[in-house]
């Protein structure tokens, strides 16, 4: 999938993947896509909850070799 920016949260634990995803989105434009990579299994549910509460769209979630890859479209 095409994306405009990438944030690698590998090795980080709650709440860093979410807090820093939010920071990464800050300077992006509406409609742009952020790719987030995380090794924290808790971030699968948290990323969806983040999207639900902030109005950003979680386009997809996938697991690739022990890592979780998210594509978040900015509101």
């Amino acid at each position: 999938m095409k994306f405009d920016k990438e944030f690698d949260a590998s090795g980080m634990s709650c709440p860093l993947p979410i807090v820093k995803t939010k920071k990464s989105l800050t300077d992006m434009a509406s409609g742009q896509v952020l790719k987030v990579i995380s090794t924290d299994s808790g971030s699968v549910k948290d990323m969806q909850a983040f999207a639900d509460q902030t109005g950003n769209t979680l386009v997809s979630t996938a697991e690739e070799g022990g890592k979780y890859v998210f594509f978040m479209k900015k509101k």
């Binding site: 709650c14 709440p15 979410i18 807090v19 995803t21 939010k22 920071k23 983040f50 509460q53 902030t54």
Partner: peptide, 10 residues
């Protein structure tokens, strides 16, 4: 943790 996360959620 809760304060930083809540702030990230708006």
């Amino acid at each position: 943790i809760l304060a930083s996360t809540a702030a990230a959620l708006g």
